[in-house]
Design a protein around this nucleic acid. Structure first.
Lengths: 126, 126
DNA sequence: CGGCATCCTAGAGGATACTG
DNA sequence: CAGTATCCTCTAGGATGCCG
């Protein structure tokens, strides 16, 4: 028996917006993508250095996830010592446009949000 | 002593894009905002019903967070039994525009992402 | 250099029960 | 009805150590 919803699937967790957010909206993905958008290619250690405070576990994990999603390209050079270069794919580049839109929204509305927070916190904790 | 960074704050976790994502990008926030965008006001129980599978803990927690950020308005009627109505604030409404943009990006690129995933998974697990 | 494997802990979040 | 409070679980993610 199939449950039928009158609404589109917006309320289900697999709605389009939900999907991207699951894809990119963690602390590190955005930062990694930014780091890659600033330069053609970045080496692993370069990313680690430029992104202060990321553990290599999370860096690797994030890069793997982005690579799996086809947003980041990973090129391994068969040299010793090892050399690996990361770069954004074409799809990855279109994603930076989206992030830019998000960034713009923030710049416009962030002051209001912070003000709202102050107001809220003052009201509940006088 | 203040630590000075040569880069702009894009790589720090508090960059603009990061901030919105921390604000809205959890499983439930998006769904709650969607639910509220479809109707002027929604009662608590109404939200709980329309959003399948959310616990009242998470619903309350999400609503409080959105209210604190000034994205959602909470109106309590002093009647018995209690009646509480939730609605989007003006800022909250502009946020739905942003979510729409995200949704559009997904609709354009999601097929590519899924295809990339299949390719990646086949390559690593033959 | 560019990782994986392991251990460990804090916090997210579900289930349940109670209340103004 | 619209929550709060408590417990309990499970996993994200840091720290550390080893390897090709």
């Amino acid at each position: 028996m199939v449950r039928k919803f009158p609404e589109p699937d917006v309320f289900q967790a697999n709605c389009p917006t939900q999907r991207v957010l699951e894809t990119i909206a963690d602390k590190w993905s955005v930062i990694v993508i930014y780091a890659l958008s600033q330069q053609e290619t970045r080496r692993y250690s370069e990313l680690q250095r430029v992104i202060g405070g990321i553990s290599q576990k999370m860096l690797t994990q994030t890069l793997r996830k982005l690579e799996r999603d086809g947003l980041v390209d990973r090129k391994v050079y068969p040299v010793v010592p090892p050399k690996v270069e990361y770069s954004l794919t074409p799809v990855g580049h279109t994603l930076t446009e989206l992030l830019k839109a998000i960034c713009q929204w923030t710049q416009i509305h962030w002051d209001e949000i912070e003000a709202a927070r102050v107001r809220y916190d003052q009201g509940s904790d006088p």
